[in-house]
Design a protein around this nucleic acid. Structure first.
Lengths: 232, 232
DNA sequence: CGTTTGCTTGATACGTATCAAAGTTGGTGG
DNA sequence: CCACCAACTTTGATACGTATCAAGCAAACG
């Protein structure tokens, strides 16, 4: 595995509190992998084998439903963990992890991670903090799905994506979400249909809140979107 | 604090793996409290002070929204933890905890819990497992809100409540949800309005899936409700 | 190129929210 | 014990948001 990859993992919240010696014990358990766009890291229902730490790229976590309508629960980027839940309780992955772009990850096999956790309580605590973060995000999503209208949910989703993958727009106006997302993805993130997602996004564009550039979305009026997210 | 209360806490997943000696170290940090129905253990936005472990009664976790429509994220019963999230990351409680009935709890002050966690890694691991469980439940709720219709969401909510507070019905037919819930509560659990919740519940009653008894709900046809939850 | 994949628009139907009003229940004090 | 009040439940009429179905269009691709 590449040295720079290991260095990056070392600065991840999960491991940053380890001493250099302890880190040497951990390194031996790490493995590197990379995936093309639209690849599955694992499928919902698979037995938990490894923890994934994203090194580059983005991955969406998708909950499949029996009636074919999928739900994108979250999108994760560099430094974030995938598969922790299944790893710790040993039950099958409750969703699929699918790359949105070319993605490189570091994995730790389930048994190895268990060893690490027992040996280094600081790592345990970081896991607790990470699960906490996820839970807060998830609760907020629940609230949004329960009380907001589609328009507000999409505005919220765009603002969240900005925090995850936002870069200054190429022409200097606004912030570009540097993740390749289809309207279908946006629909699945917000619990609506492609058509509705398109209609809302089109209106946002007509009204000057966003624009498109090479398949990516540029946010032009963050304050305006925040106003919409709050319900006008 | 009462002895039986302490004994119950000791058998909680959180502490059950502790040796008797270790348990003695922990006991000193426990405090008992009790609350009438409809009392707030804490408010959304309060700074995190303590972890609550329910000893008897039920508590709902409510996310307040700026527009007045609240969301009941979950209902918890004996043995379950309240407030862990805020305790660990130190940020304000992200929701309010409100008793549904007379409720007794054991609390551990934030600092004391941190001490316990550092001293006993087994407790840490149990916290991880508990957060895991919450996250799985939360993700399932997201899926349900995103793709199910109200009818299905309410069926699901009733089935979940059965697992939490189900007892054999007084007349032997069906299972009674032994928790005092208003239609408003059910609406807030499923992201709908009182009127719609009432209409759906009325239809369930007309069609023989449920009946009411002293303000509580009795499930008469579990299989039928499960079929509805799955989308007919 | 033709074919696929994603985007867009329109017409229509359906589920659910909203507003309004009346009925029911349980508890409280006279 | 009854009358009354507040909280909760119920029903109806109507409006609105969003899903669904159907088609056409553009861009990417092998």
């Amino acid at each position: 595995m590449k040295l720079e990859m290991m260095k990056a993992v070392r600065t991840t919240p999960l491991f940053k509190s380890l001493s250099d010696e302890d880190w040497q014990d951990v390194v031996q358990f790490l493995h590197g992998h990379s995936y093309p766009p639209d690849a599955y890291l694992f499928f919902q229902g698979d037995p938990p084998e490894a923890l994934y730490i994203i090194w580059s790229g983005r991955v969406k976590l998708v909950r499949h439903t029996s009636q074919g309508r999928d739900v994108v629960v979250t999108v994760l980027g560099p430094g974030q963990l995938i598969g922790e839940m299944a790893i710790f309780d040993g039950r099958p992955y409750s969703m699929s992890a699918i790359t949105l772009e070319e993605t490189a990850v570091v994995t730790i096999a389930r048994n190895d991670l268990m060893t690490i956790i027992q040996r280094f309580p600081e790592v345990s605590f970081q896991v607790i903090l990470e699960l906490n973060r996820r839970l807060r995000v998830c609760n907020e999503l629940v609230r949004s799905l329960a009380v907001d209208r589609v328009e507000q949910r999409i505005a919220r989703a765009l603002l969240r994506l900005k925090d995850l993958g936002g870069v200054p727009a190429p022409d200097g106006h606004g912030i570009m979400i540097d993740i390749h997302l289809t309207r279908q993805d946006i629909a699945e993130m917000t619990g609506t249909t492609v058509e509705t997602a398109i209609r809302v996004m089109s209106r946002f564009r007509r009204e000057g809140f966003i624009k498109s550039y090479k398949g990516k979305t540029i946010l032009l009026d963050i304050d305006g979107l925040e106003a919409i997210a709050r319900g006008k």
